[in-house]
Nucleic acid binder design. Structure first.
Lengths: 219, 219
DNA sequence: AGGCAAGCGATAGATCGCTATCGCTTTCTG
DNA sequence: CAGAAAGCGATAGCGATCTATCGCTTGCCT
């Protein structure tokens, strides 16, 4: 048996805040290490590409490799934590100014959110390679949109059955149109479909406007 | 240097037909091997989960491991070929009946296409793990939709700037909402968001209807 | 303050992905 | 039908991921 009974909440799984900060029950130094690992991984990915060895990450974080695996089950879990980290840093602070046009507010904030994430080409590519961008994570950080959505709905500018989670899903859908293709060396190829996400966001936004027949219910 | 000058069109990259059949210049036995590898991989993935060793795939295909790597640069390329294989088998034969309502034809065919792919939970999960579902591949097999789209557009039932590729992208976007989460053992977890794709397809379809302001152009 | 468990670094080792190279077989071309 | 070239299986080897285990340190609780 292992002397340690760890694997306590690897940052993204349970309703943690995703920033890598201390979950319940994690000892203080362990939580700190977790943060440092995520930060080091984010830096290493951005700098050296997606195929950095975890040894390198550990070295940069100033911890042993075993500790990396102690906190994150495998490479993908670490990547996901990094993605959550970036989402926390990018999506959350997106300015949600409130003008007298709730629809514009909603659309603009949504676009700004996608743009903020899309700017991190490498992270988007990494996230796709690790199984896509998690709806739950987006949902968590798009909290601010609840209010914007409510206002737009109250003004009759969006279809009434639209829920906050739908908006989060929309973000994921748009991000899915951004091609990944991490080259073998880790370089991200810019791609034909690169800038088109605005087109598809517009498509979704138009679908959010009031419509004669309601959307199929979520189950 | 290698005595063989191979790596000739690993099935999905150039405009090949994606079924694994003989590309230009591939020797006949090589093409046959390629097909057998894809078929064996598809079977192995479906049966043993996504983390099958390529040795196992090679064994099932009755070839050496080296041959697998000779035909597919890496594991992901093989997975992509399998996905293309399934798409070819599932999307293409989707019935595109033509009634007197071009819009319904388009919507129904689109829904049937997604449903056909979504039925293969394991393949969708695999595809996401390999970096998402390739727009180009979908585009290739959704060829049939060109005609349906033209008819709907001619009837003024969709926004005129909508192109066939947009429809393929829409399929990819919808498929992106189907959660992946391949468990460590390869088992695919059914997920809360499981059946919701119809909702998001409906959202996109509503966005395709004629609208006062055109979509941003593709670049 | 003191004890204990949680956490740590280091390290060894199993497994797998992938590359490279060998001599042999099969297919293509003329 | 014969030679050239393309492809093949087997195998050896490298580096990466991940598991497991050691004895030591460090934070937490009373």
């Amino acid at each position: 048996m292992l002397p340690t009974r760890c694997y306590r909440a690897p940052v993204t799984d349970p309703p943690g805040d995703g920033t890598g900060a201390g979950e319940r029950g994690l000892r203080l130094d362990a939580a700190r290490n977790q943060e440092r690992i995520v930060a080091a991984a984010a830096a290493a990915f951005a700098e050296l590409g997606g195929d950095v060895t975890l040894d390198e990450v550990a070295r940069r974080a100033g911890v042993g490799v075993a500790t990396v695996y102690r906190r994150f089950r495998n490479r993908d879990q670490l990547v996901r934590a990094v993605v959550a980290h970036v989402l926390a840093a990018e999506i959350e602070p997106v300015a949600a100014v409130e003008t007298d046009d709730p629809w514009r507010d909603l659309a603009a904030t949504l676009e700004a959110s996608v743009a903020a994430v899309a700017a991190h080409r490498d992270v988007v590519a990494l996230a796709h390679a690790a199984g896509g961008i998690d709806v739950d994570v987006v949902d968590r950080y798009l909290h601010r949109l609840d209010r914007l959505l409510s206002r737009a709905r109250a003004a009759g500018l969006v279809r009434p059955e639209l829920e906050p989670r739908d908006v989060a899903v929309a973000v994921v859908m748009v991000l899915a149109t951004i091609r990944r293709d991490v080259g073998g060396n880790g370089a991200v190829k810019t791609d034909a479909a690169s800038g088109d996400w605005r087109r598809y966001l517009a498509l979704l936004l138009d679908g959010m406007r009031p419509a004669p027949v309601p959307l199929p219910a979520r189950r």
